[in-house]
Structure formats: structure tokens, C-alpha cells
Amino acid sequence: MSIRREDVRYVADLARLELSAAEEEALVAELGAILGYVEKLAELDTEGVPATAHVHDVGTPLRDDVIGNAPNVEALLDNAPERWEGFFRVPKIIE
């Protein structure tokens, strides 16, 4: 399966990446190679094998509905580039 330049641009757009022409070119080749590698799996006969989303055959561990986190706003907000009072402050989302 080959990947087209439009596909690379589309995925880059979804990922909010700005690519130069040279990077696009390189990614066409690299993503194509990755897809080709995964495509190898299509050679397997999976007739009768249920779709598998996870390799471990165990269910999700569940936790009881108990509040266990002490508030620690200061430490958590400390990494934010910008804040205002207890909020994160980010570039305006809606103009």
C-alpha cells in the first residue's frame, strides 16, 4: 500500500504539524514503509479468529468509587506556561 502526498498533508493537518516540502517528501517514503511492514500481517489467515484489541487475556482491573486524591492545585499548575488564578490560561480559542 502506498501513501500519497495528500495523505501526509491530511494527517499532518490533523496532528497540527507544519511540514516543509522536503519533510513531506520524506514522510511519504517513511509512512509508506511503515504501512508496508504492517501489511505483512494481511498475509496471515485470520479466518475464524475474533478481532483482538489487546494481547492480554484479562479484563480491566476496576477500582472502588472512592475519592482518594488530595487537592494539589499549586503543584499541578506549576508546569503551565501561563495561568490566571486557579485556571490555565491559553490562547483565545474562539475569536
Binding site: 501561563e82 486557579g86 485556571f87 490555565f88 490562547p91 483565545k92 480559542i93
Partner: peptide, 15 residues
């Protein structure tokens, strides 16, 4: 939750 109307040039986020 995002708050858009508190500041003219930024939005605030409460998680």
C-alpha cells in the same frame, strides 16, 4: 471547561 469571555485575548481552562 473553557471560559472564553473572562479575557479578551485568552481563554481559561478548568479541568
Amino acid at each position: 471547561k473553557s471560559i472564553h469571555d473572562a479575557h479578551a485575548d485568552s481563554s481559561l481552562v478548568d479541568l
